[in-house]
């Protein structure tokens, strides 16, 4: 028996919004530590890694490890039926070929259940090595979303250049060029609003705007986003989900052959 109950059901709604444009299907791997999902987009340029820890749920039970392959479009449709304040419970029997989502309104007056067929997905699983990154940038997630949106008007690619002074986002295209510089916040009153840079070596990398814009669909999950970069390795864009886990997006850089 698998059962995961979350009073803050809107978290699951937001998680689906954060992955459904990038992934069409994915496997939710459940064990007694929680729920993990790892999947590449169709073009195999980016990778999504989601972790929801068991202790972040209001009730969590997983008697046997189960892997539930799901069509994410279908899951998104179902979760759209949940109210923002609803409690959401996912449950499945051992070896089941369906998963059930139960939504309860705060006053328990409305209870809905949606049963969905599971899929057998044979997806490649990648091992992500432990990496010490040359630069990590923490900044407000809404600011990052704004920058990605603004710069994608100028070109398909965005250059992210991080030095100890700050971080510069640039794009160039037919209509001209755009540069946005963010300085490290001098004094941090509210950490959520700060730009904080940790840098061992300066790094400049180029990324496809389209994917960065997909990643920013996670903005509502966290007030802050963390970007981690090293030369010639994938960028990590991480949104921490309060008290329960994180969603990380890995994006391969564009590099000279």
């Amino acid at each position: 028996m698998f059962e995961a109950r979350l009073l803050r059901g809107s978290i699951l709604k937001k998680v689906l919004e954060a992955i459904k444009d990038l992934l069409t299907q994915a496997t939710f791997d459940c064990d007694d530590s929680g729920i993990q999902l790892q999947a590449m987009d169709n073009s195999h340029v980016s990778l999504v890694s989601l972790q929801l820890r068991a202790d972040g749920f209001d009730k969590y039970r997983c008697d046997r490890n189960i892997s539930m392959g799901m069509n994410l479009n279908s899951v998104a449709k179902i979760l759209k039926c949940a109210g923002d304040k609803d409690t959401v419970t996912m449950k499945a029997q051992d070896n089941a070929d369906t998963v059930t989502f139960v939504f309860e309104s705060p006053n328990q007056e409305k209870v809905s259940d949606y049963e969905m067929k599971l899929m057998n997905l044979d997806l490649e699983h990648l091992g992500i090595p432990e990496t010490e990154y040359s630069c990590t940038i923490r900044m407000p997630s809404a600011e990052f979303a704004r920058i990605c949106r603004d710069l994608s008007q100028f070109g398909d690619s965005m250059v992210i250049a991080c030095t100890k002074e700050g971080v510069k986002f640039s794009a160039t295209g037919e209509i001209g060029s755009a540069n946005i510089k963010l300085a490290q916040t001098a004094s941090v009153d509210k950490e959520e609003e700060a730009v904080i840079i940790e840098m061992d070596e300066p790094v400049t990398l180029t990324f496809a705007c389209q994917y960065l814009n997909y990643f920013t669909k996670a903005t509502s999950l966290s007030p802050q986003v963390q970007l981690s970069m090293s030369a010639d390795v994938p960028l990590v864009v991480e949104y921490r989900i309060q008290d329960i886990g994180h969603i990380r997006y890995y994006l391969a850089p564009k590099i000279e052959d």
């Binding site: 590449m40 073009s43 195999h44 340029v45 980016s46 990778l47 490649e124 699983h125 990648l126 091992g127 992500i128 090595p129 690619s157 180029t206 496809a208 390795v233 994938p234 890995y250 994006l251 391969a252 850089p253 564009k254 590099i255 000279e256 052959d257």
Partner: peptide, 14 residues
């Protein structure tokens, strides 16, 4: 010009 790399080349298949 720069080319888009795939993600698989950076990580190990399991």
């Amino acid at each position: 010009s720069k080319n888009q790399k795939g993600i698989v080349g950076f990580f190990n298949k399991q």
